[in-house]
Amino acid sequence: NLRWTSEAKTKLKNIPFFARSQAKARIEQLARQAEQDIVTPELVEQARLEFG
């Protein structure tokens, strides 16, 4: 299971509600691909840039 830093959680809250669950799934996918067990603000930002 993935842990989220408080900064990453804050960044996730800045994503519009309607896109948040999809973004969260993508962020967690990116973390797993990078073999990380902690979601960082950088991963959230990477996903945000993908979504535009």
Rank of each mutant, 00 (worst) to 15 (best):
N1T: 13
N1W: 09
N1R: 08
N1C: 08
N1A: 11
N1V: 13
N1Q: 15
N1I: 14
L2Q: 02
L2N: 01
R3M: 11
R3C: 08
R3P: 09
R3F: 15
R3K: 13
R3E: 10
R3D: 05
W4D: 00
W4K: 01
W4I: 00
W4R: 00
W4Q: 00
T5R: 02
T5M: 07
T5Y: 02
T5A: 05
T5D: 05
T5H: 04
T5E: 05
S6G: 07
S6L: 11
S6A: 12
S6C: 07
S6N: 13
S6V: 07
S6W: 11
E7A: 11
E7C: 06
E7P: 04
E7Q: 09
E7I: 06
E7T: 07
E7V: 07
A8V: 01
A8R: 00
A8F: 01
A8W: 01
A8Q: 01
A8M: 01
A8D: 00
A8G: 02
K9T: 11
K9C: 09
K9V: 14
K9S: 08
T10Q: 15
T10P: 00
T10Y: 10
T10L: 15
T10R: 15
K11V: 10
K11N: 06
K11E: 09
K11H: 12
L12K: 01
L12C: 02
L12F: 14
L12Y: 07
K13F: 12
K13P: 01
K13R: 12
K13S: 11
K13N: 14
K13Y: 13
N14G: 10
N14L: 15
N14A: 11
N14Y: 10
I15L: 07
I15R: 01
I15K: 01
I15Y: 06
I15N: 01
I15F: 13
P16E: 03
P16I: 04
P16H: 05
P16G: 03
P16S: 04
P16V: 04
P16T: 03
P16K: 04
P16F: 06
F17A: 12
F17P: 11
F17S: 13
F17V: 10
F17L: 13
F17T: 08
F17N: 07
F17R: 12
F17H: 11
F18W: 15
F18G: 09
F18S: 10
F18K: 09
F18L: 09
F18P: 13
F18N: 10
A19E: 10
A19R: 13
A19V: 15
A19Q: 14
A19G: 07
A19N: 12
A19S: 10
A19P: 03
R20N: 02
R20M: 06
R20L: 06
R20W: 05
R20A: 03
R20Q: 08
R20P: 02
R20E: 03
S21M: 11
S21E: 14
S21F: 08
Q22S: 10
Q22L: 13
A23M: 15
A23I: 15
A23E: 03
A23Q: 05
A23S: 04
A23Y: 11
K24M: 11
K24V: 13
K24R: 09
A25T: 09
A25M: 11
A25Q: 12
A25R: 13
A25K: 14
A25H: 10
A25P: 02
A25C: 08
A25N: 10
R26Y: 15
R26C: 04
R26T: 06
R26V: 07
R26F: 14
R26S: 04
I27G: 02
I27E: 00
I27Y: 01
I27L: 02
I27P: 00
I27H: 00
I27T: 06
E28M: 04
E28R: 03
E28I: 07
Q29R: 08
Q29D: 09
Q29F: 12
Q29H: 09
Q29W: 10
Q29V: 08
Q29Y: 11
L30T: 02
L30V: 04
L30K: 04
L30H: 03
L30Q: 03
L30P: 00
L30D: 02
A31C: 06
A31W: 01
A31I: 02
A31V: 06
A31G: 02
A31Y: 01
A31S: 03
R32L: 10
R32I: 10
R32G: 03
R32C: 05
R32A: 06
R32P: 00
Q33W: 10
Q33A: 13
Q33K: 11
Q33V: 08
Q33R: 11
Q33Y: 09
Q33G: 06
A34M: 15
A34F: 14
A34T: 11
A34C: 08
A34E: 08
A34V: 07
E35N: 15
E35D: 14
E35Q: 15
E35C: 09
E35P: 05
E35Y: 12
E35H: 15
Q36V: 14
Q36F: 09
Q36H: 09
Q36M: 15
Q36Y: 10
Q36G: 04
Q36P: 01
Q36R: 11
Q36D: 05
D37L: 13
D37I: 11
D37W: 15
D37E: 11
D37H: 12
D37T: 15
D37A: 11
D37P: 08
D37S: 12
D37Y: 14
D37R: 10
D37N: 13
D37V: 12
I38Y: 09
I38F: 10
I38W: 14
I38Q: 07
I38M: 08
I38E: 08
I38R: 04
I38P: 08
I38D: 04
V39K: 00
V39W: 00
V39Y: 00
V39C: 01
V39A: 01
V39D: 00
V39I: 14
V39E: 00
T40L: 04
T40V: 04
T40P: 02
T40F: 04
P41L: 12
P41V: 14
P41E: 12
P41M: 09
P41R: 07
P41F: 05
E42C: 04
E42W: 08
E42I: 06
E42L: 06
E42R: 05
E42Y: 06
E42N: 10
L43P: 00
L43M: 13
L43I: 09
L43A: 02
L43D: 02
L43S: 02
L43F: 11
V44N: 00
V44H: 00
V44P: 00
V44E: 00
V44F: 07
E45Y: 06
E45S: 05
E45L: 07
E45T: 05
Q46V: 09
Q46H: 07
Q46A: 08
Q46F: 10
Q46P: 02
A47F: 15
A47L: 08
A47N: 03
A47I: 11
R48G: 10
R48E: 11
R48N: 07
R48W: 15
R48H: 08
R48D: 05
R48Q: 11
R48A: 13
R48L: 09
R48I: 15
L49T: 08
L49R: 13
L49I: 11
L49F: 09
L49C: 06
L49P: 05
L49S: 09
E50H: 04
E50A: 06
E50D: 06
F51Q: 06
F51N: 06
F51L: 08
F51D: 04
F51P: 04
F51M: 14
F51T: 05
F51S: 06
F51G: 04
G52Y: 13
G52V: 15
G52W: 14
G52Q: 15
G52F: 12
G52N: 14
G52C: 11
G52I: 15
